[in-house]
């Protein structure tokens, strides 16, 4: 589904709820002012807003994976998902990272989604988006082995047992 179609779908709900135009700008401005004063934790600003408050930028992805978003919505887990990163442009919350989380929670009618408000401009947001993966550690297949063995995931246990039978080792092997 294209981002334009998703924005249109969400805009219809915003219009029905009266969250558009001047009303939207006033609510966003008030939420941001309140959050800056009261919800600043370790230099970061957090607030909870309904997912429909958040717009998707056209400069990021051109498509939204509906299946992926639906899965996130139905299996939403605060411990698993980081807060959605959002910045403000022309009095609107614009999603910087977490488009599928926002749309997923919108699809399942969740009342609120935790967002982290970034105090940056559009250009800064684009540069930050481009550089975000560069210094972040990506999990490797071997990083999953030990935790999976501790909780005894069947495929990992079978993998280890068969390797053990044939005297084959692997990085992350545990003694049982």
């Amino acid at each position: 589904m294209s981002v334009d179609a998703v924005n249109e779908e969400m805009q219809k709900v915003r219009n029905i709820e009266g969250f558009s135009g001047d009303a939207e700008r006033a609510i966003v401005s008030s939420l941001v002012a309140s959050a800056k004063a009261n919800s600043r934790i370790g230099g970061k600003i957090y607030l909870v807003v309904p997912p429909m408050y958040i717009h998707f930028p056209k400069w990021q992805r051109c498509r939204v994976d509906i299946n992926h978003a639906s899965r996130i919505g139905t299996e939403y887990n605060e411990g698993k998902w980081d807060p959605v990163k959002v910045f403000v442009v022309n009095g609107q919350f614009v999603c910087f990272e977490g488009m599928h989380r926002v749309y997923g929670t919108f699809l399942v009618n969740r009342q609120g989604v935790l967002i982290e408000l970034l105090e940056i401009s559009l250009t800064e947001a684009i540069y930050l988006f481009l550089s975000q993966g560069k210094t972040r550690y990506q999990l490797k297949p071997t990083d999953y082995i030990r935790p999976s063995l501790v909780v005894e995931e069947p495929e990992y246990v079978a993998f280890q047992d068969i390797c053990h039978t044939h005297n084959v080792t692997f990085l992350g092997m545990m003694t049982r």
């Binding site: 297949p141 071997t142 999953y144 082995i145 390797c163 084959v168 080792t169 692997f170 990085l171």
Partner: peptide, 9 residues
């Protein structure tokens, strides 16, 4: 020692 973790799992 095997390095084919993803395939094997």
């Amino acid at each position: 020692s095997t390095t084919a973790i993803t395939d094997a799992v």
